[in-house]
Every structure is written in structure tokens, then in C-alpha cells.
């Protein structure tokens, strides 16, 4: 029987994982999406394909390669061990990296679409008015794309909450460290505790529904704004 403490631990690990995933994707994904939307590099298609790969790969395939990459003998594994003294595989930081890679397309797609919908001439006018590219980004681009950035970040958060296969492959099932709510549900079903599994699952369904309603509302606002 899963104790209340175990469920709370899973909730905390899940929220921590999803929040950090969303934060990291916002920090790294926004510049990358801006480059994908506005850049003219010939490598753009390749980068876009690599970033979108997790949506078409089975989570176990991605999880397997990440597990191999995070092994103590691998370069990332050795580097991480040298810096922190612990292993990357089967750690919270390991599942965080996996979660960021796995959720990246869900954040980057709305970011890119939001940036692409901005009239490029607004940027060109700003440069001619003397605004640097950095200032143009903060004063013109981001205020016009914030709905997309927000909905992408919320989607990435939501996706990280529900991630299962990759998390189990990379992090295993360590209570308080790598056991998220989706792994807990799997655990409860394995232990034939269907009642508790059902309640946790219902909580996740309700949470996902609320988040999707929020994203829908944000998108509607953004569409109305652009139509004016």
C-alpha cells in the first residue's frame, strides 16, 4: 500500500522536474526558436529535425540512448561525476536532462510559430530606428510573441509531468529522487493497488485538462490580438 508520504514525494519530484524542465526550455528554447524562425542558416532544417526527433521516436529508444550517454564510462557521465561526485544515470539531474530533450519539441513548436507570425518588417524598422537586435527582441519581438512563449512553456511543463518511458529508462524508480507521479501509477498498478492508482491518475487527468484549457485560452487571446 503506497503511503501518503510516498505520494507527496512523487508529487514534489514531478513538480520539481516539470518546473525546471519548463524553465530550462524557456531559457534555451526561446533563443533557439527565434533563430529557427528568423535565421537564414542552411543548417536550420537539420536542427529543426533533430529537435523534433523525440516526437516520433519511441520513448524507450530515446531513453536507451540517453542511458548509454549518461553511463559512468561515457564522456557526459564522467564529466558529471567529476563536477558533482555522483552519477548522472538514475539521478534527478539525469531525468531532468532527459525530460528537457523529450519535452523540447512541445515548447519549441509554439515558440517558433509565435516568432514566425511576427511581421519581419517590424524588426527591420526597429533596426533602422537605431534599436539593437537585442533591444528589438525585448521591446518588439517578445511582447508580440509572449502568448506563444507562455503556451509553449506550459505545454512543456505539462508534458514533463506526464513523461514515463524515458524517465523510467534513465532514472529508474527511486522514491524521492526519480519516482514521478506517472512512475508511481505504474508502480501502484504493478502492486494491484488500482484504487490509489485511479485517484492519482484522475488527479493527473484533471491537471492536464486545466493546463490545456489555459493554453487554449492563451492561444485565443493571441489570435484575437493578431487579428486586430
Amino acid at each position: 500500500m503506497a503511503s501518503g508520504a510516498a505520494i507527496w514525494d512523487a508529487i514534489l519530484v514531478t513538480l520539481r522536474l516539470a518546473s525546471l524542465t519548463a524553465l530550462l526550455l524557456a531559457l534555451l528554447g526561446v533563443p533557439l526558436a527565434y533563430w529557427l524562425a528568423m535565421g537564414q542558416s542552411r543548417f536550420r532544417s537539420l536542427v529543426e529535425a533533430v529537435v523534433t526527433l523525440p516526437t516520433v521516436l519511441p520513448p524507450t529508444v530515446l531513453g536507451y540512448y540517453l542511458l548509454v550517454a549518461f553511463a559512468p564510462q561515457s564522456l557526459p557521465g564522467r564529466l558529471f561525476r567529476a563536477l558533482t561526485g555522483t552519477n548522472l544515470a538514475f539521478s534527478f539531474w539525469g531525468i531532468l536532462v532527459a525530460s528537457v530533450i523529450f519535452s523540447a519539441p512541445f515548447a519549441l513548436r509554439p515558440y517558433t510559430v509565435a516568432f514566425q507570425s511576427i511581421d519581419r518588417r517590424l524588426l527591420e524598422v526597429s533596426w533602422c530606428l537605431g534599436l539593437s537586435r537585442w533591444r528589438t527582441f525585448w521591446a518588439v519581438v517578445l511582447p508580440l510573441a509572449w502568448h506563444g512563449v507562455l503556451s509553449g512553456t506550459v505545454l512543456a511543463f505539462c508534458h514533463a509531468v506526464g513523461a514515463f518511458g524515458v524517465i523510467l529508462m534513465v532514472g529508474g524508480n527511486i522514491p524521492g529522487r526519480t519516482r514521478t507521479l506517472s512512475v508511481l501509477i505504474y508502480d501502484l498498478v504493478q502492486a494491484l493497488e488500482y484504487g490509489m492508482a485511479g485517484r492519482v491518475a484522475a488527479g493527473l487527468v484533471l491537471f492536464a485538462l486545466c493546463v490545456l484549457l489555459l493554453v487554449h485560452w492563451l492561444n485565443r487571446r493571441a489570435t484575437g490580438y493578431r487579428a486586430r
Partner: peptide, 9 residues
């Protein structure tokens, strides 16, 4: 660059 030319476009 455009910023240095100060052409009001």
C-alpha cells in the same frame, strides 16, 4: 549596419 545609418524607414 542599419542602426548606424539612422535612416528613418
Amino acid at each position: 549596419p542599419p542602426q548606424a545609418r539612422r535612416t528613418g524607414l
